[in-house]
């Protein structure tokens, strides 16, 4: 066991997979010699060589196209998009190409590609670095979307993502990269994709969330407990496509109330899909409608007003109060 930050857990996972499977290739802008703009690939090129870990020209469509061609030839590419706001450049190669490869070839070709990319607010980045664009890929049949919230989960989920025979988008929240350390086992372990984690137990309301909003929601739950003596159960989805509806339903059977918290704008992200699934599968267990605690439907905010725009623990508590007063 070792104390690791999330970024160290990610590097560690990449290291293990590069060692375990020679078909694994890591590439992108500045991931080679430089070790990545966040040091996620630090030391990997030196250890595995320029054939396994390498820099590419600055072109996102080219990078994912490269991954696509390598996958068709039996490799397991782990490309990086430097910031997920740049994904629009690679949109066709993800949503138009790799996501459809198995289907359009009736299984002849597949794309075991893991796209790693940082995103997320709270660190005052310039434009189009922090945007939460995961929702775009919930609407893309054929890809899975994974968002870890801790070092332990990041390692186990990344190992599962790389080993998955189909494309996975692995989104790494920048604010979580170095915000805390956690015990992470040195040995291999996997966390299954599509399985949520109850990070705080409670009986009065369920908070369904993911990414950096997991910690914010736990904070809110503690505040709520102190202020109202009510206990919120916090579910970290970990994978937002597919959504683990079973865990959510189980929780709602106990709490009868739920809110969804996300960093993406109200109309974006996973919230609407989560509410729809709850509606379909747990309506008879609900005492109140499922509410969403999200930022408004504006473009991602300018750096100086970011903290006012992102959901705060107080905003989540207010939403919990609303849902319990209905």
């Amino acid at each position: 066991m070792a104390q690791m930050t999330m970024i160290q857990a990610i590097t560690h996972a990449l290291d293990l997979e590069l060692a375990r499977d020679e078909r694994v290739l890591v590439f992108g802008e500045d991931v080679g010699h430089n070790g990545g703009v966040f040091r996620a690939t630090e030391g990997l090129q030196k250890k595995y060589g320029e054939d396994r870990v390498f820099d590419t020209p600055l072109a996102e469509s080219g990078i994912i196209g490269l991954a696509n061609g390598l996958a068709v030839q039996g490799f397991r590419p782990v490309p990086e998009i430097q910031f997920f706001g740049f994904v629009f450049e690679a949109f066709d190669q993800i949503a138009g190409q790799i996501s459809r490869l198995r289907y359009r070839s009736a299984g002849r070709f597949s794309a075991p590609v893991t796209i790693r990319s940082p995103f997320g607010g709270g660190v005052h980045t310039p434009e189009l670095h922090s945007d939460s664009l995961e929702g775009l890929f919930l609407q893309t049949p054929g890809v899975k979307v994974v968002i870890p919230s801790s070092p332990y989960d990041a390692k186990g989920l990344l190992l599962s993502a790389i080993r998955d025979p189909d494309p996975v988008i692995f989104l790494e929240h920048m604010k979580l990269y170095r915000s805390f350390r956690q015990e992470v086992p040195e040995e291999e372990y996997t966390i299954p994709l599509g399985v949520a984690n109850v990070v705080r137990e409670g009986k009065d309301a369920t908070i369904v969330t993911y990414g950096a909003m997991v910690a914010t929601s736990v904070k809110a739950a503690e505040q709520w407990s102190k202020e109202k003596g009510l206990e919120a159960e916090v579910i970290d989805l970990r994978t937002i496509s597919p959504i683990d509806i079973e865990t959510i339903v189980k929780s709602i059977q106990k709490t009868n109330r739920a809110i969804v918290v996300q960093e993406a704008q109200r109309s974006a992200g996973a919230a609407a899909e989560i509410v729809a699934q709850i509606n379909e599968q747990a309506i008879y267990h609900l005492e109140a409608p499922v509410l969403r605690a999200t930022p408004p439907d504006t473009v991602y905010p300018f750096g100086m007003i970011e903290d006012d725009w992102l959901p705060t623990p107080q905003y989540i508590v207010d939403t919990l109060n609303k849902v319990t007063s209905l």
């Binding site: 994912i64 196209g65 068709v72 190409q97």
Partner: peptide, 13 residues
């Protein structure tokens, strides 16, 4: 789309 995939196939070779 096929043109950005071509370097991937060629790199595999």
């Amino acid at each position: 789309a096929q043109i950005v995939q071509t370097p991937g196939v060629a790199l595999a070779f």
